[in-house]
Amino acid sequence: MPSSFRCTSHDHGHVPAARRRDSEAPLVVLLHGRGSTEREILDVAAHLPAGPEYAAVRAPIAEGGGYAWFANRGIGRPVAGSLRATMDWFRTWLDEAAPAERPVILVGFSGGAAFAGGLVLDDPTRYAGAAILYGTLPFDAGLATGPGRLANLPVFVAQGEDDNVIPRELLDRTWDYLLSESGATTLAQRQPGGHQLTAPVVRHLGDWIATGSPR
């Protein structure tokens, strides 16, 4: 099992408490889906490669017995002001938890994928890579998505062929953008199944983290 730690939130949406570690090893930040918690996605770290440090962060907005990264105006469509507020909140934590020279890889599932996408679109040079798992980039939420915005950024995108949670138009738009106009170095996979992580995707994610993501 890889070395890992959990970042947990205080009440009322405060920035999560983190154990700062002076290390040159990549920090992999796991971002859970809407209505979930950091405990669920942290389990994925047990199946990822040793070497990096793993952190699972709890989103700041209470929703459905769990937490969310932003208010939305429909599935996969963040409210721009809400997304901006939580991205700023996250960056406050990250800049304390990991010095700028330390590689940071984002791994987001579903709503966490949209949040990870927003973070890298907002500041592509801050991150060493991003995994967009079973989710969409946050299009039309006030972030730049022009040609070359993610130039040379390692990205892993995985989708379910029968995903009926995220609108197909957004999945397709994400797929097409990451594989062409974005300029990202993208590894893309569509797997049989719906809106859930599968063992093959987690295995490929681990390979990507181990061999291809940090730049």
Rank of each mutant, 00 (worst) to 15 (best):
P147W: 10
S36W: 00
P214V: 15
E169Y: 05
D123Q: 15
E40T: 07
S110I: 14
V15S: 03
H204A: 15
T174V: 00
E181M: 02
T211V: 13
A210N: 08
P200R: 10
R6W: 06
G65N: 06
E63G: 01
D95R: 12
L133S: 11
V120M: 10
G13L: 10
A59Y: 04
L94S: 08
S3T: 12
T186G: 01
E53S: 11
S182H: 04
A184R: 03
F70W: 07
D123E: 15
V28F: 08
I209D: 10
A113H: 04
A131G: 09
E38M: 05
V29G: 00
E96D: 14
S110Q: 12
A116I: 11
F70V: 03
F115T: 06
G65Q: 06
L42A: 12
A114F: 14
G35E: 02
D172L: 06
V57K: 02
L171A: 00
T8V: 08
G64M: 01
V107A: 13
L137A: 09
A158Y: 02
I132M: 07
A45E: 03
H10T: 08
E101V: 15
A116C: 06
Y54D: 00
V57P: 01
S182E: 02
E181K: 02
P147H: 08
R6G: 11
L121G: 10
E161D: 04
L31R: 08
G64I: 02
R149G: 00
W208M: 14
